[in-house]
Amino acid sequence: MPVRFDQVTYVYPGSHAAGDLALAGVTLEIADGEFLGVIGHTGSGKSTLIQHINGLLQPTSGRVTVDGLDLMDRSVRREVRRRVGLVFQYPEHQLFADTVSEDVAFGPRALGVPAQDIEQCVIAALERVGLDFCEVGHRSPFELSGGQMRRVAIAGVLATQPGTLVMDEPMAGLDPAGRSAMRDLLRALHQQGLTIVMVSHDMEDVAALADRVLVLRQGAVYAHGATAEVFSRHAELREIGLGAPRPARFAARLTSLGLDVPDDALTVEALADAIVRACADCGEVR
């Protein structure tokens, strides 16, 4: 059980009002190898939540454990930060070194990986994000395309070989081709066994990638479950101003027009299958 939140409440320092809970009693478990999508409005607590997973923030009350290590214990935080890699929004803005390999090497070096092993870490991390060490390792990260820079930043996090990858809006600002390449990359990393927690406001990305979805509202868990199950509750999601993915919304509209299409389809292909089935059923009844 890598990540566990137990009644976690967080109040940002300096806020006084009673309603200023950035997290309000969050309890949840993220299983090994899970791909969790985290959705909610700006200000719903998504960023606050993910910063608790690697101990950047500590709960005001309650407990966060990673592989049983309690993050209130200062002595384990370094180890937890190795196990949980956090990729911020627009991570390429944090690239700083003269070369791609220097940038990717920063993490393992800071964690005390022996000098002779560092190059191997860098080669492997770049390979995992689809970049070739010989081709880009010696180049300035700032000469690369935006999509490549983001991959370098992710490689920098993967270089310390975390078991869990936490990503804040990994698709933000990418064009359709870049987004689809990033989806492929996240799928591949998940298949390699990484636990992934992805914050996103794009319901299609969440529907395409996540096994489970967590919906936050005003710092509290509003819904948490299997992706299809959470997105089938679109009336509730709409009530709090979140849309369900297009296929689920379209299915609901057809149902309201009298063609009974189940609303658990998350992709266009699955929706097309469901519509064709519904049309066939209609024909049989007639």
């Binding site: 057809l254 027009l257 063609l259 519509i275 064709v276 049309c279 007639r286």
Partner: peptide
């Protein structure tokens, strides 16, 4: 095999789907 038009308009698509459901 469903006969629906090429359109940007979801409403047009909905109507076409409902039509082909009742024709079958």
């Amino acid at each position: 095999g469903l006969d629906v038009p090429l359109t940007l308009d979801e409403t047009v698509l909905e109507e076409a789907i409902c039509r082909s459901a009742s024709i079958r």
